[in-house]
Amino acid sequence: MRRAAIVGTGAIAAAHAESLRALGDRVELVAVADVDGERAAAFAKEWGVPRAHPGLAELLRAERLDLVHVCTPPRHHVPIALDCLAADVHVLVEKPPALSLSEVDLLVEAERASAGRVATVFQHRFGPAAIRLRRMAAEGVLGRSLVAKCDTLWYRGDAYFEVPWRGTWDSEGGGPTMGHGIHQFDLLLSILGPWSEIRALAARQARAVQTEDVSMALVTFADGTVASVVNSLLSPRETSELRFDFERATVEVEHLYGYTDAHWAITPAPGHDDVAASWREKPSGVVSGHRWQLAAVLDALDSGEPPPVTLADTRITMEFIAALYASAFTGTVVKAGDIGPDDPFYKSMEGAGAPWADAR
C-alpha cells in the first residue's frame, strides 16, 4: 500500500482526503502538515489521519512517504515540490503548479536528479467522456477538428479576495487565467493537441485586485483548428463550457466544477448518425474529479511509469498561459516557443507589468 501525506489543509485538501479514502485499499493517508497547527490537528481528526506536523521539513523527516499532495496557496507549490524531489518523494501538486514558466523549468531540472516525479492536478482530463473524446479524435472517428470554444464563466465577489494571497501576482501568479479557467483550457489542449499562436486581451473590470478578472483569447492550433477561450470571475450565471466542432459531429459539455456523461451532448453532422451511436456506447455516471486522477497516478507508480499529468504536459498549458498574458499585455500575436528565458513573461505572468498597474 502506498503511503501519502497532504501539505496544506485548506479547502481543497478535503477533495484530496476524500479521494485517498475512496482508494483506501491502494493508498493510506498517514500524515498532514500545515503551518497552522490547530487547523492541521482539526483536519487530521476529521479525516482520521494518524499524525499532523507543523511543516514540510518535519513531515519529510518523520514519515516514510511515497506521495505528497501539495494543497497550499500557489506561491508555495514549487518550493514544497523541490523539497519533496530532494527527498525522492513523488508529488501531486494542485493548480497552478507554478507561478511562471521559469519555475516549471526549475522543477523539470530537479526532477531529472530525483527518483521522485511531479504530477499536476488537472482532474477534468480523467472523466470517462474526456477519455472517450480523446480516443475518438485520435482514431479519426470524428473527422478533422475545425472549431472550438472554451468558456469558464464564474463569479467571485469582493469578499473572495479578502483572503490576503488572492488577486496578487506574487501569490497566485495571475487571475482567472491562472487559477480558474486553467482546468477547462487544459482539457481543451489535451484534446486538440499543440497550439501554434494566440491573440488575447485581459482586463481588470470590477475587482480591486492586481491581476485580471477577465481574459479572452483567439487560438490557432497546429492542426488548423481555431478556438476561443474566455476566463471570467464576473459572471453571475456560472458555467463551464467546452464545444468541439469536428467534420462529423459537434461534441460539447456544460457543467460547473465536475461532469458526468450526462453533461455531454453530441450532434452528428448530416449522414453521420453512426458517430453519435459510437459516442453513446458504454455510458458512465462517473463524476470527473480528483479520485480518478489519483487512481491514474497510482496505476502509473505501480507500473513504474511517470504519473499523469507530467511536467512536460504541464509545461504546454503553462506556456499557453504565459503567451495569453504576453499577447494581452503587449498587443501582439504570440507563437508557441516565443517565450524564452530572456522574455519577461518567462519569469512572471505579469511580464513587464499589467496595463493597469499604475492605477493600483
Rank of each mutant, 00 (worst) to 15 (best):
Val334Arg: 14
Met318Ala: 04
Pro50Trp: 07
Arg207Asp: 07
Arg166Asn: 10
Asp245Leu: 13
Phe126Ser: 07
Leu218Ile: 09
Ser171Thr: 02
Ala33Cys: 08
Leu101Pro: 03
Gly285Leu: 07
Glu46Lys: 07
Gln210Cys: 09
Asp88Phe: 10
Ser284Gly: 01
Val251Ser: 13
Ser196Gly: 01
Asp213Leu: 11
Pro128Arg: 10
Pro54Gly: 08
Leu189Pro: 00
Glu63Thr: 10
Val230Ile: 12
Arg280Phe: 12
Val297Trp: 02
Ser190His: 14
Ala200Met: 12
Asp299Lys: 00
Ile321His: 15
Phe244Asn: 05
Glu247Gly: 12
Asp105Cys: 07
Glu109Gln: 13
Trp169Ile: 05
Arg51Ile: 00
Arg134Asp: 04
Ile191Tyr: 10
Leu187Ala: 03
Met1Asn: 10
Val93Glu: 05
Cys150Arg: 14
Ser284Trp: 06
Gly8Ala: 07
Arg26Leu: 10
Val93Pro: 03
Pro283Ala: 07
Arg132Gln: 11
Trp356Pro: 00
Pro50Val: 03
Leu188Lys: 13
Ala222Tyr: 11
Arg61Leu: 07
Asp261Phe: 14
Ala42Cys: 07
Leu101Gln: 13
Arg237Gln: 13
Ser114Asp: 03
Pro50Ser: 03
Asp25Ile: 00
Gly289Pro: 02
Glu103Val: 08
Thr220His: 15
Val91Glu: 09
Gly127Lys: 08
Pro164Lys: 04
Ala87Thr: 04
Asp299Ser: 01
Trp264Thr: 02
Ala42Ile: 01
Arg248Pro: 00
Ala296Lys: 04
Pro194Met: 12
Glu212Gly: 05
Thr152Trp: 12
Leu20Pro: 01
Val229Asn: 09
Gly174Asn: 03
Pro355Thr: 05
Ala86Phe: 01
Asp343Pro: 04
Ile198Lys: 11
Gln210Pro: 04
His124Phe: 00
Arg156Trp: 06
Leu311Thr: 06
Lys335Asp: 01
Val35Cys: 06
Pro50His: 03
Met136Ile: 03
Leu106Trp: 08
Gly193Ser: 14
Leu85His: 14
Glu172Leu: 11
Gly116Tyr: 01
Asp223Asn: 14
Pro74Phe: 07
Glu63Phe: 13
Ala328Glu: 04
Leu324Asp: 06
Ser303Arg: 11
Arg2Tyr: 11
Ser284Tyr: 06
Ala22His: 05
Gly174Cys: 06
Leu256Tyr: 12
Ala249Cys: 01
Leu106Lys: 14
Val253Trp: 15
Thr332Cys: 00
Trp47Val: 01
Phe345Ser: 04
Thr168Ala: 04
Ala357Lys: 05
Ala295His: 03
Thr211His: 01
Arg51Glu: 03
Asp313Gly: 15
Asp34Ile: 06
Val121Tyr: 01
Leu142Ala: 08
Pro307Ser: 11
Asp261Ser: 08
Glu94Trp: 10
Val275Tyr: 13
Ile321Asn: 15
Glu241Ala: 12
Arg360Gln: 07
Val287Met: 04
Ala62Tyr: 15
Leu99Cys: 02
Asp66Tyr: 06
Leu59His: 08
Gln184Arg: 10
Leu92Ile: 02
Val78Gln: 11
Ala130Arg: 08
Leu99Lys: 11
Ala148Arg: 15
Leu92Asn: 02
Ala322Val: 00
Gly37Pro: 00
Ala119Ile: 04
Lys335His: 10
